[in-house]
Every structure is written in C-alpha cells, then in structure tokens.
Design a binder for these strands. Sequence first.
DNA 1: GCCAGTCTATAGAACGTTCTACAGGCGAAT
DNA 2: ATTCGCCTGTAGAACGTTCTATAGACTGGC
Lengths: 328, 328
Amino acid sequence: MTGKRPTLMDVAEAAGVSRALVSIVMRDAPGASEATRLKVQAAARELGYRPDSRARLLRSSRTRLLGLSFSTAQAFHAEIVDAAYAGATIRGYDIALSAVANGRPEARAVESLLDLGCEALIMISPSLPPEELAGYAARLPVISLLRDDVGDALDSVSSDDHAGIHLAVEHLVSLGHQRIAHVDGGQAVSSAQRRAAFQAEMTSRGLDARVVAGGPTEEDGLRAGRELQQDLPTAVVAFNDRCALGVWESFRAAGLRVPDDVSVLGYDDSQFARLSYVQLSSISQDAPLLARAAVDRAVDRLEGTTSAAHLVRTPHLVVRETTGRVPG
Amino acid sequence: MTGKRPTLMDVAEAAGVSRALVSIVMRDAPGASEATRLKVQAAARELGYRPDSRARLLRSSRTRLLGLSFSTAQAFHAEIVDAAYAGATIRGYDIALSAVANGRPEARAVESLLDLGCEALIMISPSLPPEELAGYAARLPVISLLRDDVGDALDSVSSDDHAGIHLAVEHLVSLGHQRIAHVDGGQAVSSAQRRAAFQAEMTSRGLDARVVAGGPTEEDGLRAGRELQQDLPTAVVAFNDRCALGVWESFRAAGLRVPDDVSVLGYDDSQFARLSYVQLSSISQDAPLLARAAVDRAVDRLEGTTSAAHLVRTPHLVVRETTGRVPG
DNA sequence: GCCAGTCTATAGAACGTTCTACAGGCGAAT
DNA sequence: ATTCGCCTGTAGAACGTTCTATAGACTGGC
C-alpha cells in the first residue's frame, strides 16, 4: 500500500551527506553548519521523514520516557493523565500510557511500561502491595500518586488526608454542626486514613465520631445515605464526590433538602462536583497539581541525586452549595 | 541503583547456548528441544530477563501493535479502551495508547503512535478532517470508531444513528407521545446526523420536529431544558446521556416530574445511565462491542486482503425509568 | 612553514533483538 | 553405503538509530 517509511539513510542520500550528519541535524545537536542544516531539513521534509522512536530509544541510553499507569475505572484519572502530559512536555520528557483495565492487572500494565524502556514510573493510586512496588523501585524510580503508604523505596506524592478531614470538620463545625457523620470508602485506597482522621478529629473536639460503611461509588453512597436516615445527622462527610452524590440522592429521594435539612460534603473536587446543577462542596486535592508534582519528582529523581521521598500537599476546601448552617 | 537489565546474551551465557536459541525459546518458536527449552527458561527466570520490546519491535517487521487514540475529556472512552485491550489480547496483538488531551492535539497523539511502529490505528471519534485522516490511511489501516463520515480511505465502525433515533421516536410514540423535542449535540461529532435523523423520522410520521440547540455536556442540557420549558413537550430525545441528565435536572429544578410530566430519553447508555438512582432510558450503541469490532476490523485489514469498509451496527433501546406514557 | 585549536563531516561500532543461511547429527529410505 | 530429510543448534547480518573516534579543512600564532 505504501512503500517503506524513509530512514536516516534515505534522507542522507537525498541530501548528499552522511547518515550521522542527518542524525545530528534531526537532534539539533552541535556539529553541523547552518547551510547543511537547512539542506538536510529540506530533504527530510521532502521525504516526509520521521525518526523511528524504537530505534532511537534502543540506541540512546536515555529514553526520556516516563511511564504512567492509570485505571479505566476511575474517571478522574483522565484529569491526571492530562496534567501529566502537560508537565512532562515542559520538562522535555514524553509519556507512555498504560491502562489497568478489566482483565489487565496492574502488574501487567507496569511491565509493559518497563518493556517500553521508561526511565521512571508514575502509578496513580497503585493497588499492588508495597513489597511488589519496592521490587520495581529497585530497578527505577517509582512515584506513587495519591497513595502514601507504599514503603520507603518509592516516592509518593499525595494529599494530606488528615488536613483534608480537618478542613471538612472545621468547616461544618463553624456552621454550627455537631452531629456529623462520615461515610467511608470501604476497601478503597485512602479510605482507612480518612476514616481514622475523621475519628481523631471528632474525638479531639469531644464530638461523637459516627462512621457508616460506604464505598467509592454512587451506589455505595446511596446505600449509606439510607442507613443514615434512621438517625439523621445534620451533616455528612463522604469518602469522595461520587459517594457524596449517592448520599445526596438518597436524601433527595426521601424529601430531605440539602443543605437546609442536612449538609453534604464531598472529597476530591472532581469535575462533576463543579457542574452548575451539582455545586457540591468538596475538599480539593487538586489532582492536576499533584500530577505535575509527580512528574517533577520523577524527573528530579532521574536528573538529580535525591533519594526517595514522600511529598504531601495540603488540600483545600471548596465551598459550594451543599453545605450550610445547621438546621433549627 | 540497579545494574543493567539482562539481555538475551546474558541468558545465553548463563544457559550455555547461543543467543539465537534463547530468542527461539522466548518466542515459543519451533527449533529447540524440550530439554533446552526448560534449561533456557530456567536461566531467564533466574536472571529476571524480560525481552526489550524496543529492540524486538525494531527488528521484526511485524510489531503486532495496534495504536488507539482516545480523549481524556470523554469519560466513556475509558470503557472503549477497556474493551479494546481485551479484544486485542484475544487476537494476539498489543495496544499502544495515546491520549488527546489539553494542549495535545489529535495529530500529535496519532504521530506518537506512528513513531512507536503501530501497524494499524484505531481512533475514537476522530475530529481531524477526512483529508488528513486519509493521509494517515495511505500509510496504514486506520479505523474510525464512532464516526462514519470519514471518506473511503478509512475503515469505520459506528452505530446507525438513523436506526437509533428511529428506535427512540418509535418508543415514545408507542407510549402515546406526539410532542417530542430533540436537544441536539451542537458541534459534537454525530450531532448533525442525529439531528437530521430526528427531523426525518418525525416528518415521516407527520409530527412536528422541534429541535433546540444543546451540546454534549450536562450544562448544555440544562440550558436547553430551560428553553424547552417555555413550551413544554411531552417527551425529549437528548443528544447523549450527559445532555439528558442536564435536561432532566432542569425539569427537576422546576418541579416537573420525570416521567410523569415529561419523558426523557438519553443516548449512549453510558455507565452512569445505569446507576440505580439515575435509571435513564437510553439508546445503547454498545461501545465495548463496537470496540471489539474495531479491533477485529484492524486485525482483518492487517492479515487479510480486505479493503476499507464502513461497518455499521444497529443500536438498541434500553428502557429504564425516565420514559413513560404521555401525561393526561 | 609548522603546530595547535576549532569547526565540519564521516566511518564504523554499538544497542538488543529477529531472521536467514547453514552445519552437524541421526534415522529411515533408497 | 549413499542420499534424503528432519531436528536441533549456531553464526552473522540485518533493523534504524546514536555515539565515539577520527579525518580534513581552515584559522591564527609563532
């Protein structure tokens, strides 16, 4: 259909120079005069030459490639992918993507990135046990994004769950709430930390720390919301925004008004929390910013001499329309 | 930190055989006895050897790699990625992912896939003009997924919008509706087709084809819903599920009940349409199935002698709880 | 006129695979 | 015994780059 794609050799012949010189020009490396540079570039354009990244990667020790593993099941990972691309471009790196999907476990995703020759790995909310992660980290820098209990062999860039929960409770208390419940994330990553933080925070204020079992999805929130209604608190802190939405929906179905009858606070500040008809108050981890930080961390590990570290950013509160003064 | 990763040569030395033989064993190719096969495999495992995909890809003419471009802005693309992985694995191919993201245009995404040595390209709802797509298609098979007006140089796998809209209108009419409005998708891919199909379908039934301007997001639906309320129809066919959700929300805000006062029908049958508290009636394109079809099509193009074709699948109706009998 | 230094350009060896060609051993058929 | 073929194995050339070493052509300083 097409004939073969042109190689360095083809361009070299067309321009009447050596292969090596073409390579120099294509890489913008020093060692070619301005005149031949132009001549070679013209020939390359003429032939529609594009460097073969496989060959290039193979030969050069540096691949300038960062591996990013994400999950197709988590919509907000897309936001992170987005930000990571932007960050990598700025630092002069490229990103290789690998998804963990149905029937494609995390280990497989990571290994495909390794085979591609990535110099560092960024894993979004990795679910592998710390030992296995450490195994990878022995071979190349690995950055865990949004999960910090990964041992000392890895870097991590995450958000301070304690601070986030503190902000949440502080906000609600300042609105007069005392009976505040937490719907946790079940088995989800970070759920245990947030639950513990909630308990600590409430206890330290002398308040009752009511926790009901939830999960990361709307369904989980819906179920938990129904359970809450048997003894309705005045405010709810949900594990994440999707869960909060489910809780809210269960209230709505029961004729309860948010925030007049009960306040609902989410976590993550995901895209849809900002939708004009949702306007969910939430704790923002600023995922894109964390993604940038992870990329920076990866590059620093590659180019500097720093060792693994755990970077923790403080989240912030975004007040929208689902939290209000305590009723009555 | 790590030492170099082991190569074929290392394994060969460890097992006391030649490089080529190790290659044969690793590829499960014929030409090695069972005994040495075991010996080599043991040595490879011992050293933690993994083949370098860059070198492998470089040397072999076949890369067995399918490029898949998707958009981080479209949540349901994740479902497709998921299905594509599964399909590719079955056919013995691998998938290279490239995202079109903020500041990373489609052309860039495609070119990075090309440089990786993909043998065929699957593009989800490509937004490039047909001429440019044809340019790529001259070099390798390109499958357009969910968009069919891409010219004859490309394959396409899409869903029959006419049939889908027909199902939608048929369903509503069978429930007694006559005053049915369509909220279109604005500039979105497929919007024009669905709008035209709606107009044709309604006109052929002697009904008034009311169309209001919408878009692909909840916000767009919300806006359109408000406009609709100035002269409320008994049923609404929205461009997609997100749009339908916006329309619904605008009704809910106005105290209108769905489906008692007005029916709302979505399109796409996305993940969230199935959520227990949403239960949106919708037209399903069965995206995962289309993804499988696209993968199959790509592989067939590579292995068979078939030429480009446009494959159209018929969508089906999923009745949930947002459509009901005409009021009054 | 000769050496040192700079700039441009080239040849040829890598990188880690796969592929082609071929060699030796062995059994069966001539 | 020779020939044929199959099976197992190897050597060495590819693939398209980048890298190292070096050659030639100038400059300028003595």
